[in-house]
């Protein structure tokens, strides 16, 4: 393995001198795969299939968050989980509020200042409200979509369309 030393005394190992994740020949195919529309669609579909599961998980986190009360360590940990997943669950607003709360708590800890419980409580309430509204919106969307679908099928059936 070829190594060289820089002016600053650092030892440098160039990419050609250590094992790469993929060979040069496979590298071309890999790049084509990563940029392919077919693969992007496959990935989007795969992620969408997890949305209902993630939505349930977020609702459980929200309940835990409300129960956490003044246990700030727990509040931070749960808010972080919500921040990590809410957008993937289609609950973007809850995720953004959770992110704001995490940033506030993290920065206050970094500068060794006490966290204001009122700010935490406001965020927790906003996360819960946003998550429930987004859950209701999604459920309402599912119901409306299913009913319209049934209506169209019935009318098409009446019109003799098979």
């Amino acid at each position: 393995m070829a190594r060289r030393t820089t002016d600053t005394g650092a030892e440098l190992i160039e990419p050609d001198d250590y094992p790469q994740m993929v060979s040069k020949r496979d590298g071309l195919r890999c790049m084509q795969t990563l940029q392919s529309g077919r693969v992007a669609l496959k990935a989007k579909t795969a992620m969408a299939s997890y949305t209902p599961m993630l939505r349930d998980a977020i609702m459980e986190y929200v309940e835990s968050l409300e129960e956490a009360g003044t246990d700030l360590q727990r509040v931070f940990a749960i808010a972080h989980e919500i921040r990590n997943f809410a957008e993937n669950a289609g609950m973007a607003t809850a995720g953004r509020v959770a992110e704001n709360l995490c940033r506030y708590m993290d920065e206050m800890e970094r500068v060794k200042k006490p966290v204001d419980p009122a700010i935490v409580a406001l965020h927790v309430a906003a996360i819960a409200r946003a998550a429930r509204a987004e859950e209701d919106d999604a459920k309402m969307g599912d119901v409306v979509s299913a009913e319209l679908n049934a209506l169209v099928r019935r009318r098409l059936n009446d019109a003799g369309v098979r």
Binding site: I13, E14, L34, A40, K44, F85
Partner: peptide
């Protein structure tokens, strides 16, 4: 939160622009 595009772009960086390793 992760997205497919973000993960794929990180993997593409590894494939396309591997970096030298440094001991310092």
């Amino acid at each position: 939160p992760i997205t497919a595009a973000n993960l794929f772009s990180r993997i593409a960086e590894i494939v396309e622009r591997p970096r030298a390793f440094v001991r310092c």
